[in-house]
Design a binder for these strands. Structure first.
Length: 422
RNA sequence: GUGGGUGUAGCUCAGCUGGUUAGAGCACCAGAUUGUGGCUCUGGGGGCCGUGGGUUCGAGUCCCAUCAUCCACCCCA
C-alpha cells in the first residue's frame, strides 16, 4: 500500500459515521433549545486574521498553522480554530446592526500542525458556540451550561468543570509584574520551559505539570486575588449564577487559556476517562477580540469542544455506539435474470422501502448468508417457479419463516411487516 | 520540536540463539446441501515480513537510516 491518509488525519469510516451523525443531531437539538443559530464560515482565511485574532505569540500561530500562498500570492491559512472566523464574519456582515446579542454555533474541521498522539490530530473537528454583544455574567453561565447540558444529553457521566478568571488587560498586566516579582529568585530552579515562560508568558508557569515547578509556585499570589474590582465582581456573579443553577464546578486559579484573546471568564471541561489529552471543552470570554481584528469594542464569549475527544470519552465510558443503517429488505435471486431482480428492487424502492440486492451473481445460499450477516430483516427470494405465477417468497430472517406473496402486493405486504416490527 | 515503544495475511498475533517452499485463529470464497443464512466439517484465495541500505555463504530474525504508527513531553480541542 503506497498512499495513505496524511499524518494526523483519518478516515471516518461507514461504521463510525452513524455515531458522528448522532453527535451532530444532538448538537443541533441542544443549540436549538438554547437559541443558537448555525453559521458556516470558510475553512481557510487570510493568515493575518489568525495572527491578529489568536495572537502572534501563541503556539498555534507561531508553529502550528497550515499556511500557504494561493496562485494570486495571497497568504492563506487552514483555520486552526473557529472563533476568529466567526468574529470576522460578524464584523464583515455588520451583525452589530442586528438585534443583539448574536448567538451562533459551528461544526467542522480545524487544522493544526501538531505531533499526533492519543486525542490529538492534525485535522480534527470542533463544535463551538459564540455570543457577541453582551458582557452580562449570566451569559457566561449560559455558555458554560451549554456544553454541560450537551454532555449530559449524550449520556456522558464522568467530567469535571473548571473555571477561572484571567482578568482584563489591566489587572493581568499588574498581576504579571507581581508574579514575576514573586518568582524572581526562583527562576534558576524552574524547568527550562518555565524559565522561558518567565519572560514570555509567566502566567503559564502556574499551569506547568512539572512536579518541581508545581512546588515552587505553590505559595505564589494568584490571579484571582489580583483581579480589578470590575473583573472580580464579574467573576463573583458568574459563580453565583452557576450556584443558583446547582451546577458544580472547581475554581482552578491555575487555569490559563493559551489564546491571547481571552479575558475574564475561562473554563475547561475535563474527562478523566481520557489520556493526556483530557480536555474535552475549552472556552471563555474575549471582550477585546473584535477590537483587535479591527472592529468596534464589542464583547464576546464562546467555547469549542473537540468531537474526536468527546466520542473517545463516550467510548471509554462504554456508552453504546449507534449501529450503521442497513437496508430492511434484500432481494435474492434463484435462477432468474438479474435485470428482473433489479426491476423488483426498484419497484420496492419507489414504494419507499430500503432495499438492496446481490451484485455478485452468488448462489442463493451465499446471498442468504450475506443478508443474515448484515442483519437484514427480510429477504425476497425471486425464483423461476414463483415468478411464473407472478409471485415471490418473503423470508423472515429472524424467525426463519417464509411465505409466498404476489408481486403486486409485495410492497404493501412488506410495509405492513416492517410497521408491525417496530 | 524532544523522548520511548511498535511495524509479519483484511483483523489479532506466532515465528526459539539468523538456516530450505513464512504460520495460526478470526474474516473472505467455494463445496458437503445442483432453490434456503446462523452450527459443523472439508478445501481455496490471499504476504516484495513498512521502505532503503549494510553485515553474512544465508536476514522476517542482527546493525544503520528513513517512513508510518502508538504513548508521553510540549501545546491544546
Amino acid at each position: 500500500m503506497s498512499i495513505k491518509a496524511p499524518r494526523g488525519t483519518k478516515d471516518i469510516l461507514p461504521s463510525e459515521v452513524p455515531q458522528w451523525q448522532m453527535f451532530e443531531a444532538k448538537v443541533r437539538e441542544v443549540c436549538k433549545l438554547f437559541g443558537y443559530s448555525e453559521i458556516r464560515t470558510p475553512i481557510f482565511e487570510h493568515t493575518e486574521l489568525f495572527q491578529r485574532g489568536v495572537g502572534e505569540t501563541t503556539d498555534i500561530v507561531a508553529k502550528e498553522m497550515y499556511t500557504f500562498l494561493d496562485r494570486g500570492k495571497r497568504s492563506l491559512t487552514l483555520r486552526p480554530e473557529g472563533t476568529a472566523s466567526v468574529a470576522r464574519a460578524y464584523l464583515e456582515h455588520k451583525m452589530q446592526g442586528e438585534a443583539q446579542p448574536i448567538k451562533v454555533y459551528y461544526l467542522g474541521p480545524m487544522f493544526r500542525y501538531d505531533r499526533p498522539q492519543a486525542g490529538r490530530y492534525r485535522q480534527f473537528h470542533q463544535f463551538g458556540v459564540e455570543v457577541f454583544g453582551t458582557k452580562e455574567p449570566t451569559v457566561d453561565a449560559e455558555v458554560i451550561m451549554l456544553p454541560v447540558f450537551f454532555f449530559q444529553a449524550l449520556g456522558l457521566k464522568e467530567f469535571t468543570l473548571e473555571i477561572n478568571s484571567v482578568g482584563c488587560p489591566r489587572c493581568r498586566q499588574a498581576y504579571r509584574q507581581q508574579l514575576q516579582e514573586a518568582l524572581k529568585e526562583r527562576v534558576p530552579k524552574l524547568c527550562s520551559d518555565c524559565a522561558e515562560r518567565y519572560e514570555k508568558n509567566p502566567l503559564r508557569i502556574l499551569d506547568c505539570k512539572n512536579e518541581k515547578c508545581k512546588e515552587l509556585v505553590q505559595d505564589v499570589p494568584l490571579l484571582t486575588g489580583a483581579l480589578c474590582a470590575e473583573c472580580a465582581a464579574h467573576f463573583a456573579q458568574v459563580k453565583q449564577a452557576l450556584d443558583a443553577l446547582g451546577q458544580e464546578y472547581v475554581v482552578n486559579p491555575r487555569l490559563v487559556r493559551g489564546l491571547d484573546y481571552y479575558t475574564k471568564t475561562a473554563f475547561e471541561i475535563i474527562s478523566p476517562a481520557l489520556g493526556a489529552q483530557s480536555s474535552i471543552c475549552g472556552g471563555g470570554r474575549y471582550d477585546n477580540l473584535l477590537a483587535t481584528i479591527g472592529g468596534p469594542d464589542i464583547p464576546g464569549i464562546g467555547f469549542a469542544l473537540g468531537i474526536e475527544r468527546v466520542l473517545a470519552a463516550l467510548e471509554a465510558e462504554g456508552i453504546s455506539r449507534k449501529a450503521p443503517d442497513v437496508p430492511d429488505i434484500f432481494v435474492a435471486t434463484a435462477g432468474v435474470p438479474e435485470a428482473e431482480a433489479l426491476k423488483v428492487t426498484m419497484q420496492l424502492r419507489e414504494a419507499g422501502l430500503a432495499v438492496d440486492k446481490d451484485y455478485l451473481g452468488r448462489s442463493l445460499k451465499a446471498q442468504l448468508k450475506f443478508a443474515g450477516r448484515k442483519g437484514i430483516k427480510y429477504v425476497i427470494i425471486l425464483g423461476d417457479e414463483e415468478l411464473k405465477n407472478g409471485q415471490a417468497t418473503v423470508r423472515d430472517m429472524q424467525a426463519g419463516s417464509q411465505e409466498v406473496v404476489s408481486l403486486k402486493e409485495l410492497a404493501a405486504h412488506l410495509a405492513g411487516l416492517l410497521r408491525g416490527a417496530e
